[in-house]
């Protein structure tokens, strides 16, 4: 699934990374626990999270996760936006709950990590 498809399915806002929206995603992982995210080794991941701080972006940076999707109407802070831009990440914001978000992406065929 292309990142742009995630954007349209979820009516999401693109905060940064507009130039990478045509890139494909292979799987999604939903968690507010960065400890768990850091244990993954799948490529082409979107991280779906309600954890909204700079460590979310650092975790994505270290784990080579190209796309971070903030749910539950969380807004990226200016620090987060700056870090995400610096690292060429795609950051999306969506008003839906975690449950609704993952339900939509799962039924449209975006694979889980496990």
């Amino acid at each position: 699934m292309e990142i742009s498809t995630v954007v349209s399915l979820l009516d999401a806002r693109v905060v940064c990374g507009h130039q990478r929206l045509s890139e494909p995603l292979r799987a999604a992982f939903a968690s507010d626990l960065m400890s768990d995210v850091l244990t993954l080794d799948t490529d082409g991941l979107v991280l779906i999270t309600g954890m909204c701080n700079t460590q979310t972006i650092r975790t994505a940076e270290m784990s080579d996760i190209a796309c971070v999707l903030l749910v539950r109407g969380k807004k990226a802070t200016p620090d987060m936006v700056a870090l995400a831009c610096e690292n060429n990440l795609v950051m999306l914001e969506c008003a839906y709950s975690m449950y609704r978000t993952v339900g939509i992406l799962y039924t449209h065929g975006l694979a889980p990590v496990y």
């Binding site: 507010d32 626990l33 400890s35 850091l38 954890m51 979310t56």
Partner: peptide, 9 residues
């Protein structure tokens, strides 16, 4: 609260 502390590190 910062998203850590699972004892996984």
């Amino acid at each position: 609260e910062m998203g850590f502390g699972a004892g996984m590190g």
